[in-house]
């Protein structure tokens, strides 16, 4: 009998990384790896699909609902497919008073997508987020791991044009 392969699994390098992460915690506390592993699978798959969550549940030997509960609690896990670049812009007070609202309005217009949407060319997804701990360098947004700070309308144009290339 052939057992069906799960549709999603870690690439060999990520599998190694995942196994290393498991060693961070005492015996029997492997559920602690849940958040890092969800980041890892999302980095691989682009988003956190139900299949990806089921795979992680299986990997950690926990119930799928325990993964759903966690993945829906935190804001960084994309529960829907996203564009190539996810732009997470800070909408909180300190960035707002430094002109964030105008800059972000321009950003949305420029890429042709509103909050939570993906641009028609599937390149950009816009996600408003709360404070990114870069208040003195605002307005700011984040794309994957990179912070873009001191944003102005001109700077947004440059960044987006660069990413479109």
């Amino acid at each position: 009998m052939i057992t069906e392969k799960p549709r999603i699994q870690f690439t060999p390098e990520r599998l190694e990384r995942a196994r290393e992460i498991l060693t961070h915690y005492p015996e029997g506390k492997q559920k602690s790896a849940l958040l890092p592993l969800l980041h890892l699978i999302q980095e691989q798959e682009g988003w956190t699909s139900p299949e990806a969550m089921d795979y992680i549940a299986d990997f950690l030997g926990i119930k799928p609902i325990e993964v759903y509960e966690v993945a829906t609690f935190y804001t960084m896990y994309h529960l829907e497919p996203v564009g190539k670049h996810v732009i997470e812009y800070c909408r909180t007070g300190p960035c707002m008073i430094m002109g964030g609202e105008e800059v972000y309005a321009h950003l949305k217009k420029k890429i042709g997508a509103d909050d939570g949407e993906t641009s028609p060319d599937n390149l950009f997804t816009i996600k408003p987020v709360e404070c990114l701990a870069a208040c003195g360098w605002g307005p700011c947004f984040q794309i994957r791991e990179k912070y873009y700070t001191h944003l102005t309308i001109e700077k947004v144009d440059e960044i987006i044009d660069e990413l479109k290339k």
């Binding site: 119930k63 799928p64 609902i65 325990e66 759903y68 509960e69 829906t72 609690f73």
Partner: peptide, 10 residues
């Protein structure tokens, strides 16, 4: 013996 529902979102 197998919870399938929980509290989602926040």
């Amino acid at each position: 013996d197998g919870r399938v529902h929980g509290v989602l979102n926040r």
